[in-house]
Simulated assay, not measured.
Amino acid sequence: MACLVLSVAVVVTIGPASLSVPDVFEVIGARLGFVDTGVSRIGQGIVWNLRLPRTLMAAVSGAGLAVCGVVLQSLLRNPLAEPFLLGVSSGASTGAVLVLILGIGAGAVSLTMGAFAGAVVAFVLVMALARLAGGGTAKVILAGVAGTQLFSAVTSYIVITAADAEQARGVLNWLLGSLSGARWDDVAVAGIVCVLGLALCVSRSNALDAFAFGQDAASSLGIDVLRLRWLLLTATALVTATIVSSAGAIGFVGLVVPHAARLLVGHRHRALLPVTAVLGALLLVWVDTLSVVVAGAQEVPVGVVTALVGVPAFALLLARRRNMG
């Protein structure tokens, strides 16, 4: 945790303005009314209004997506499960383009609200489809794949038929993930939802441990398997929807980080969940910084950088697991 706090402070100093880590803590302390600061008004504005909310949003998003990945991989007993498996990301994309391109609810519905509504609709549809198919882990995964394809097709159709070049570029940047528009209210909402989601998952850590031995074993231990599955699927979907609605679709964090955390602390969820949250936050804080500085004036969408970093990292993790096994 100390490493995460220090990383946030260091990342906030990176940029054209001349700032130091003590300056960052001074500005935070001054804003909270604890100390006075000699940092200029421009410097205070850069720290408090621009860089700090973006960096904290990166930390919250990374932590939330990583925790959702752990829970889904354990719950579905699938090492390739990740937060966007339930169609949430594609549904959010559809909701976003309905507002951005077709102007549905324009003036009354923001891009964030439209994306969140789309994510929730997609999740409800996927869960209804899974239930109609008879429930079960495999049916949830298949329903998620079908829902993802459906909403991705709708999004593509809207962009192709109704968007001009500028709108298409804006949609593409959003779909690939961007933290450039992060505001304090986004950080507050996403932070509260992620903390509540993490607390719920930690409170069910023993039950998640039991799922490693299969649903029958978990049921024999007195766990209400069906209720727990729906509760945690809903919680992970809401956390993912909140993050995606503010930051776009940031891939690979929820897939790669849980495997790295298991190599560090093992499979017991009481330790695994908080460690995964910290690692996810660290990863996305630094990856977002890399996305800003790697191409100079042209900012690279953070989802592109997570994929470029995540694919080789995942390959190394797979190779290490093979050598260990």
Rank of each mutant, 00 (worst) to 15 (best):
Val5Pro: 02
Leu6Phe: 13
Leu6Asp: 04
Ser7Gln: 04
Ser7Trp: 07
Val10Arg: 00
Val12Ala: 01
Gly15Thr: 02
Ala17Gln: 13
Ala17Val: 15
Ser18Pro: 05
Val21Thr: 10
Val24Thr: 11
Val27Thr: 03
Arg31Cys: 00
Gly33Ile: 03
Phe34Asn: 00
Val35Gln: 08
Gly38Val: 14
Val39Tyr: 11
Ser40Glu: 02
Arg41Phe: 11
Ile42Trp: 02
Gln44Asp: 01
Gly45Asn: 13
Ile46Met: 04
Val47Gly: 05
Val47His: 08
Trp48Ile: 00
Met57Tyr: 03
Met57Gly: 14
Met57Ala: 13
Val67Leu: 05
Cys68Tyr: 14
Gln73Val: 11
Gln73Ser: 06
Leu75Phe: 11
Arg77Met: 05
Arg77Glu: 02
Pro79His: 09
Pro83Asn: 05
Leu85Tyr: 10
Gly87Ser: 08
Ser89Val: 07
Ser93Arg: 01
Thr94Arg: 03
Val97Asn: 07
Val99Ser: 00
Ile101Leu: 07
Ile104Thr: 13
Ala106Pro: 00
Gly107Gln: 06
Ala108Asp: 01
Val109Lys: 00
Ser110Gly: 13
Leu111Ile: 14
Met113Val: 14
Met113Asp: 02
Val121Phe: 13
Ala122Asp: 02
Val124Met: 13
Leu129Asn: 00
Thr137Trp: 04
Ala138Asp: 12
Lys139Ser: 14
Lys139Asn: 15
Ala143Pro: 11
Ala146His: 04
Thr148Met: 10
Gln149His: 15
Val154Ile: 15
Thr155Asn: 02
Ile158Lys: 06
Ala162Ser: 14
Ala162Lys: 09
Ala163Lys: 06
Ala165Arg: 12
Arg169Lys: 14
Gly170Glu: 06
Leu172Ala: 14
Leu175Arg: 03
Leu176Phe: 11
Ala190Pro: 03
Gly191Leu: 03
Val193Cys: 03
Cys194Asp: 06
Val195Ser: 02
Leu198Pro: 01
Leu198Ser: 12
Cys201Tyr: 05
Leu208Pro: 12
Leu208Met: 12
Ala210Phe: 10
Gln215Ile: 01
Gln215Gly: 10
Asp216Val: 10
Asp216Cys: 00
Arg229Ile: 03
Trp230Tyr: 15
Leu231Phe: 04
Ala235Trp: 01
Ala241Asp: 09
Thr242Val: 11
Ile243Met: 04
Ser246Gln: 15
Ala247Met: 04
Gly248Ser: 09
Gly248Tyr: 07
Gly251Ala: 13
Phe252Met: 10
Leu255Gln: 09
Val257Tyr: 07
Pro258Met: 11
Arg262Asp: 06
Leu264Ile: 14
Val265Asp: 13
Gly266Asn: 08
His267Lys: 10
Leu272Arg: 10
Leu272Asn: 10
Pro274Asn: 07
Val275Gly: 08
Val275Leu: 14
Ala277Val: 10
Leu284Gln: 09
Ser291Ala: 15
Glu299Gly: 01
Val300Ser: 04
Val302Gly: 07
Val305Asp: 03
Val305Phe: 09
Val305Gly: 01
Leu308Gly: 09
Ala313Arg: 00
Ala313Thr: 12
Leu316Pro: 01
Leu316Ala: 15
Leu316Cys: 13
Leu318Tyr: 02
Ala319Val: 08
